[in-house]
Amino acid sequence: MDDRTADGGGLAPQAHANANGTAGENGKTTKLKIFRGDAEGGEEVEYELPMVEGMVVLDAVLNVQAEQAGDLAVRWNCKAAHCGSCSAEINGKPKLLCKTRMEEYDGEEIRVHPLKAFPVIKDLVSDVSWNYEVSRSMTPFTSDAQAPFTMYEEDVERLYEPKKCIECFMCQDVCHVLRTHNKHAEFAGPRFFVRAQWMEMHPMDNQNRLKYLHEERGGVGYCNITKCCTEVCPVGIKITDNAIIPLKERVADEYYDPAKWLMRKLRGNRNGARNGG
């Protein structure tokens, strides 16, 4: 990922324009409280800046960085809600800074913090590398066939939604299993349930990840389906309904359904050995 973890460096051209162009014309200003600190600790610092119609929070943060705090660290890249780099918390809720308009908080205090489920590196930048470790722990897509595959639309229409994921990790951040209960060592999190659902439902994949999800690193049983991940997903993936619950149902098939358990016993198969056909 070619993110710009700007520490006084990368600056959005639009932010310059806002700061130096039309911003002062109507004389309106706005205030923003930004977390300044690192893993050792920190505090909110309030900044006042020119308010421009249509401004998003990332514009404001970059304006502060350009005009008032050159050492402010913020991660961003596409500024079009496609790369997932600028995820942070605004007033305690995970948001993409580039997709959140300042007008949404008209009359409210705006407080910007880094993602709290992961260690802070500096200011608004968290270390999300844990997610890549989880990703590596999962059996990747594996097929006996050679790509490009010939598949029917009816078999792949369910796979479009999980592929929309931009890996902003906001679902991971809001998930209370990680954020409150710190189950990082035994719970993969919603982002990787989305990935697992894509692979498990892929007609050309020949691997089985139910054992991983239930008995190993996946820890899908920790999820109590309270849907915070779905609420914050910036691309609208119905994570709980379309990824986590289908996986829980497949786990129930394998581990908790007495009729299916009996059938497996009669056929001499083991739990977790399913390869959905």
């Binding site: 409150t180 049983g221 920790y222 389906i225 914050v232 908790y256 359904d257």
Partner: peptide
Amino acid sequence: CSSKAQEREPRGNNYNGERALFILNNIHR
């Protein structure tokens, strides 16, 4: 889902999600 609400959530190491008592919910079908 907000951080303010999640601060009120009971904490500790005894969170089991649907792996202990609520594992019974798997009988839903």
